[in-house]
């Protein structure tokens, strides 16, 4: 903890103005609360950035600390280690950890009603559906290999017919033709590729039977017992942030060029595209962050195809009801 504070202080002095604005707003007498995001700062977390910048969390009495994620951050580890109260995760790894290792997690909300990951390929060598993958080289982050295998099996394809290699979230091999397709966020990567002057196409795993959420809101059972009120406050403020964001998805990304998005190496246009593309994947008749019974059921069914045996009691929808 002291190390992190030292780092903050260091960064603050090293780049006073810009770094300072990226620090979480701190209101006095508010309850400290830490969230671990699932990825580096991008439009995927716009709702939370708005909540912090516009003081929605502060209004709820939360002094929110936001921890960025990245390809090598395992959000669940952060909450087990007690460094964050809440994490955004992928439901397959979370449910696998609960089912197989007895990890004490509960899922209390879901950001994406439809998982944005999909198969991205070039229009010049298009892969429009699972069976097009046969005999092709597909780059997949090692974590997602089971999801891809499940999607292939659901569509009657033997996974050994596809050459799966590790994916480092770099579109270059795809653009260069070294691989035929990659598994990535369809809200984001096709645009990044288009910026390189090459046209990309994609389809969602969700649309081919792998019907899971993404960025599920996960807490430990202990946090659920001791910080229930804060968790409800967090959900309420986050929903407000997302409501605000989608009033006009084009407004917010440019405002964060020098704060949240500084130094990520991506363009603001890319984030605007992302923010627009993710809206249909997040909308739910029950409001943002919701989990419906049909949705939960679809998750459990898809995961059981992969041999991950989740149960309804791993989800707790009662906090959402309290919003």
């Amino acid at each position: 903890m002291t190390l992190r504070l030292n780092r903050r202080r260091f960064l603050g002095t090293a780049a006073a103005s810009a770094a300072a604005t990226s620090l979480p707003l701190r209101a006095s007498a508010a309850t400290p609360f830490t969230m671990q995001a699932a990825w580096i700062n991008d439009a995927e977390f716009a709702g939370y950035f708005i909540g912090i910048d516009e003081g929605y969390y502060a209004e709820e009495g939360l002094d929110l600390t936001y921890l960025s994620g990245g390809p090598d951050v395992i959000p669940e580890s952060t909450i087990i280690a007690g460094r964050a109260d809440l994490a955004l995760t992928t439901p397959d790894t979370t449910i696998k950890a609960i089912a197989e290792q007895g990890a004490p997690f509960k899922i209390i909300g879901a950001q994406y009603q439809k998982n944005p990951i999909g198969i991205v390929s070039l229009v010049s060598n298009p892969i429009n559906e699972p069976k097009d993958l046969i005999g092709k080289t597909l780059a997949v982050p090692p974590v997602n290999v089971i999801s891809v295998n499940a999607m292939l099996a659901l569509n009657g394809i033997d996974p050994s017919q596809v050459n799966i290699v590790p994916y480092a979230y770099d579109p270059t091999p795809l653009i260069q033709g070294e691989i035929d397709a990659s598994l990535d966020f369809t809200t984001n990567v096709p645009y990044t590729i288009n910026q390189q002057g090459v046209e990309a196409t994609s389809f969602l795993l969700y649309d081919f039977g792998f019907t899971i959420y993404n960025d599920t809101v996960v807490v430990t059972e202990e946090t659920l017992a001791t910080k229930r009120a804060e968790l409800v406050s967090w959900l309420r403020a986050s929903r407000k942030g997302w409501d605000e964001n989608f009033k006009d998805p084009n407004i917010w990304p440019p405002k964060w060029a020098d704060t949240w998005f500084a130094g990520t190496g991506r363009t603001i246009e890319n984030e605007i595209f992302f923010n627009n593309a993710q809206q249909p994947l997040m909308e739910s008749p029950a409001g943002y962050m919701a989990m419906t019974e049909e949705g939960i059921d679809a998750n459990l069914r898809a995961l059981s195809e992969v041999g991950i045996n989740g149960t309804r009691d791993m989800f707790d929808t009662t906090l959402l009801e309290e919003i």
């Binding site: 960064l11 990226s22 580096i40 700062n41 921890l67 960025s68 994620g69 990245g70 390809p71 090598d72 951050v73 480092a168 979230y169 770099d170 579109p171 270059t172 795809l174 653009i175 984001n188 990567v189 990044t192 590729i193 390189q196 130094g263 990520t264 190496g265 991506r266």
Partner: peptide, 25 residues
């Protein structure tokens, strides 16, 4: 840095930039 998350550091920058498909960077 490359394996540890966090926003700043050349390793973190490298990770963030991998997704851009720009070899020159």
């Amino acid at each position: 840095e490359f394996g540890g998350g966090g926003r700043w550091g050349l390793g973190a920058y490298l990770l963030g930039s991998l997704g851009r498909g720009e070899p020159d960077r």
